[in-house]
């Protein structure tokens, strides 16, 4: 009986102590997804046959941080898509909470900003949940095998692009392109919380 009690207590302890699964960590393999692009076509990571990896960015229309980084995200794709690291932007915001993030508004932004990369809608928020995205913009750099190699901010200065001293995403992708380990794998930043649907 005593043993059973001890066992039960132990089980209860492990149960309570088990970490809540909160998205991918560095080194974990991301699951591919299929989401609708602003042109109406469905897009998966597997569609990019020549990709050496992916720059997955959870982003939106409305967040001032997203606005501050719009042109920098376009520049990232311009620089790295040809080298095999395309940008895949995903908007997870619930448009009923953030009207400016509707599918129509997404299409307009992609056109206005000349997005040369997919801007996908994560309507059920399941991809953002699987990745553990919390902010916009929130970057996940994946290697060819979809292993997560970097999580976090694009660089270290949201306010002023000219004052950036660390380009975290570029450093991560450059490292992967030359077969080195990513120097800094996680970077936090102030940003807009994702507008989740009511539970």
């Amino acid at each position: 009986m005593k043993r059973v009690v001890i066992l039960l207590v132990l089980v209860a302890f492990t149960w309570a102590g088990a970490p809540v699964k909160n998205g991918y960590d560095i080194g974990e393999t991301a699951a591919d997804f299929k989401l609708k692009n602003v042109d109406g076509k469905m897009v998966s990571l597997a569609d990019f046959k020549d990709a050496q990896g992916y720059i997955v960015i959870f982003d939106c229309n409305t967040c001032p941080y997203s606005k501050a980084y719009n042109d920098r995200i376009v520049a990232l794709n311009d620089k790295y898509a040809a080298k095999g690291f395309p940008v895949i932007a995903i908007n997870p915001n619930d448009p009923s909470k953030s009207g400016g993030d509707s599918f129509d508004e997404m299409a307009k932004l992609a056109k206005r900003k000349n997005y040369t990369f997919p801007y996908l809608v994560d309507e059920t928020q399941s991809v953002a949940t699987a990745f553990g995205a919390t902010n916009t913009p929130h970057v996940f750099v994946l290697d060819k095998a979809l292993k997560v190699q970097y999580i976090g901010a694009i660089d270290d200065n949201a306010r002023n692009e000219n004052a950036v001293s660390k380009r975290y995403v570029e450093d991560a992708v450059n490292a992967l392109l030359s077969g080195r380990a990513v120097p800094i794998t996680k970077v936090k930043a102030i940003g807009c919380g994702i507008k989740w649907k009511n539970a």
């Binding site: 919390t134 901010a153 936090k188 930043a189 102030i190 940003g191 807009c192 919380g193 994702i194």
Partner: peptide
């Protein structure tokens, strides 16, 4: 400046997203 240097010092569970 540089939130990455101090967000964890305030709260490790915080991603930096607002509100918190």
């Amino acid at each position: 400046d540089n939130p990455n240097a101090w967000i964890d010092k305030i709260e490790k569970r915080w991603s930096g997203a607002l509100p918190a």
